Simulated assay, not measured.
Amino acid sequence: MRPADETGYPEPHPRAYSSLFLKDGADPEDVTADNWRSMFEEPGLLPLDTTEYNSSWAWSAGNVISTTGEMIQVFDAFASGSLLPPAQHRAVWSLVSTEGGNWIPNAAYGLGVFELDPAVTGGLTLRGMGGSMQGSHFAAVGTPDGEQTIAVHTNTEFKTWKVLFNALEAQFGTPPIPGL
């Protein structure tokens, strides 16, 4: 973890661009899962380079900087059970449906992780983890045994699940997800 006041990144690194901004007068502490859309500017703003923006505000991000390769290693350890003791691993993967919510379609969510419904993956069990903030979105998805994993990193925040699901289709041969 880097110090809270450090905003630079080690080279090489991608640039980060965002068009997601709080409205004038909006207090970040007032943003909730229910009202966040009303607290941000309308789409269509020109992207702003947020590469040097400090990520320490982002709760679990904790101002930690990782490479895509490091994130794949962490994900594989989470998915396969090699990172945590068995009871904690089971707790992480005790999943609840995201159906009806505003998150990953056709998935169940655990403690920072998700598993896609095998009905939409052609019968494959695919687990994932990811996150997004201004100027960056990352997701890793793979098999529970850690044998096959892909990662998608964009240099803008989350916009759609289509990029991830297209990558899953290309890598794992999953059928196209309806409605994306």
Rank of each mutant, 00 (worst) to 15 (best):
P118K: 07
A33P: 02
M1I: 04
G44P: 07
A77W: 03
P14E: 07
L46S: 15
E115W: 01
F114I: 10
P86C: 08
G122Q: 07
I104A: 15
A119L: 10
P176M: 06
I150R: 04
G128V: 02
M39D: 03
W93S: 05
Y53G: 10
V64N: 10
L45K: 15
F165H: 11
Y9S: 11
G81L: 07
E99Y: 08
V152M: 04
I72T: 03
E52N: 15
F21V: 05
E41S: 11
G122A: 07
V92G: 00
L168R: 03
V120F: 10
G81E: 03
D27Y: 07
L20S: 13
M133P: 00
A139N: 12
D117L: 05
A16K: 12
F172T: 02
H89I: 01
G123S: 08
D27V: 01
R2T: 13
D5N: 14
T98D: 12
T154Q: 12
L111P: 02
A108H: 14
A77I: 01
T51K: 06
L22E: 07
T143Y: 07
P12C: 09
D24G: 13
F172V: 06
W36D: 06
Q171G: 00
A108W: 13
E29R: 12
G100Y: 03
L95P: 02
I72N: 01
L84E: 02
G81D: 05
A151G: 04
V31R: 03
W36V: 04
Y109S: 08
I150P: 02
E169I: 00
D49C: 09
R127F: 07
K162Y: 02
K162R: 15
D76M: 03
H89Y: 13
E6F: 14
H153T: 15
F114N: 05
Q148F: 04
T7Y: 04
E41W: 02
F75Y: 08
E41K: 11
P14N: 07
A140V: 05
A170D: 13
S132C: 01
